[in-house]
Amino acid sequence: MNGVEFNELQRDSIIELINLGIGRAADALAQIVSEEVHVAVPSVKFIQYKNLVEHLREIDDCEPSVVAQRFSGDFSGNALLIFPRKSGATLVNLMLRDTVSDDQISDLEEEALAEIGNIILNACFGLLAELLSTQLDGDLPTYIRANAEKILEQNINEINDETVQVMLLQVDFSLASSKTKGFVVFAMDVASMETFKAKVDSYLANIFS
């Protein structure tokens, strides 16, 4: 079963929405680091949650840095911001102008990454809620460092639903002269995904009416 299908128009508008949100996040990040930050989401993909592992493997064969944040409202689920381990360290380095080696992310640095994730995800939620005329509450972010399988397992257990579907968004960060890449994942069960789709449709209907 392929889960909820999204057509091209829907996908395009999701990218547009997320980019608007991410744009806000970039502004927030820029304020923190007092430097221009560009964040862009060039693509969106819908896949089964269980196939996420392969995608994560593509990013990094060992342990990616993950910030997870639950959201709830008309549609609910788990949002993950995933960086390849190196990118996570790079991001902290870029943000803090510090030297952190990739196998040496400390607690405080994990918190910092959590904040970055929090800002980005909150921005996405805020915008989605605003433009899709709904309410989304965001939980506190948690930083997870584990391999792809573990993350999957952990989240599956939490959601405990094989029908969970994933909206996978690639996120490109560029800061000063450096660039790094990560992913934003929204994991939702079928019901939530359907609601989400319906919200997108009514948003579209609103625009074209």
Partner: peptide
């Protein structure tokens, strides 16, 4: 304000704040 208006939680890490 995000928390009060939109229901968003937030982390202010000591590194950035």
């Amino acid at each position: 304000s995000n928390a009060l208006e939109k229901g968003m939680s937030a982390v202010l890490s000591q590194m950035f704040n």
